[in-house]
Computed example of a mutant assay.
Amino acid sequence: MTNVRVTYDGEANAAYVYLNHPEVRQRVAHTYPCDPAAVGGMINLDFDKDGRLVGIEVLDAGTKLPQYLLDAAERLDT
């Protein structure tokens, strides 16, 4: 099983799911915002220069992500 890094800021109610290798720092070249009406909130998909998905930003994360994932996430608001 692959470990995925997830950060969560409870004050902002925002989470970020990193899909790149933990030792590789990748730059975001393009952000694709998902239609907020279609997904019931704001979700941004981040891609690198080669078009690979490297991260997912989830706003209003408390209603969009499972609680176990938020509980396990690295906290940014402490």
Rank of each mutant, 00 (worst) to 15 (best):
Arg25Cys: 03
Arg27Ala: 15
Glu23Ile: 01
Ala61Leu: 07
Thr31Ile: 12
Glu11Asn: 15
Ala73Asn: 09
Asp48Pro: 06
Asp71Ala: 14
His21Pro: 02
Ala12Cys: 05
Pro33Gln: 08
Leu19Cys: 10
Gln67Asp: 14
Ala73Asp: 09
Leu65Ser: 06
Asn13Ala: 12
Leu45Arg: 04
Leu19Gln: 10
Leu19His: 09
Val6Gly: 00
Arg52Ala: 12
Pro22Trp: 06
Tyr68Cys: 01
Asp46Ile: 00
Val4Leu: 14
Asn44Phe: 09
Val28Asn: 05
Pro36Glu: 11
Leu70Gln: 08
Leu65His: 02
Gly10Arg: 10
Val58Arg: 00
His30Ser: 11
Ala61Pro: 09
Glu74Ala: 02
Glu11His: 13
Asn13Cys: 06
Met1Pro: 13
Arg5His: 10
Tyr68Lys: 10
Tyr68Val: 11
Ala72Met: 11
Asp77Arg: 09
Val28Asp: 02
Tyr8Asp: 02
Cys34Phe: 13
Leu19Ile: 10
Pro66Thr: 08
Glu11Ala: 12
Gly55Arg: 04
Asp77Tyr: 11
Asn20Gln: 13
Val4His: 10
Ala15Asp: 01
Val24Thr: 14
Thr63Ile: 08
Val54Phe: 07
Val58Ala: 04
Ala61Trp: 03
Phe47Val: 02
Asp46Asn: 12
Cys34Lys: 08
Glu23Val: 05
Ala15Lys: 00
Asn3Gln: 14
Asp60Phe: 05
Asn13Ile: 05
Gly55Tyr: 02
Glu74Pro: 00
Tyr32Lys: 13
Arg5Gly: 03
Leu70His: 09
Thr31His: 02
Glu11Leu: 13
Tyr8Lys: 04
Met42Thr: 14
Gln67Phe: 07
Tyr8Val: 04
Gly55Ser: 08
Gly51Pro: 05
Leu69Ile: 15
Ala15Gly: 07
Met42Gln: 14
Ala12Ser: 11
Leu69Ala: 14
Asp9Ser: 06
Asp50His: 11
Lys49Ala: 15
Ala12Gln: 13
Asn44Ala: 13
Phe47Met: 03
Asp9Arg: 05
Thr63Cys: 05
Ala73Ser: 12
Arg5Ile: 03
Val54Met: 08
Pro66Lys: 13
Thr63Phe: 05
Thr7Ala: 08
Thr31Asn: 06
Leu45Gly: 04
Asp71Gln: 14
Ala38Ile: 00
Pro33Arg: 10
Val54His: 01
Pro22Val: 06
Asp46Cys: 06
Met1Ser: 14
Pro66Cys: 08
Tyr32Cys: 07
Glu23Asn: 11
Leu53Val: 11
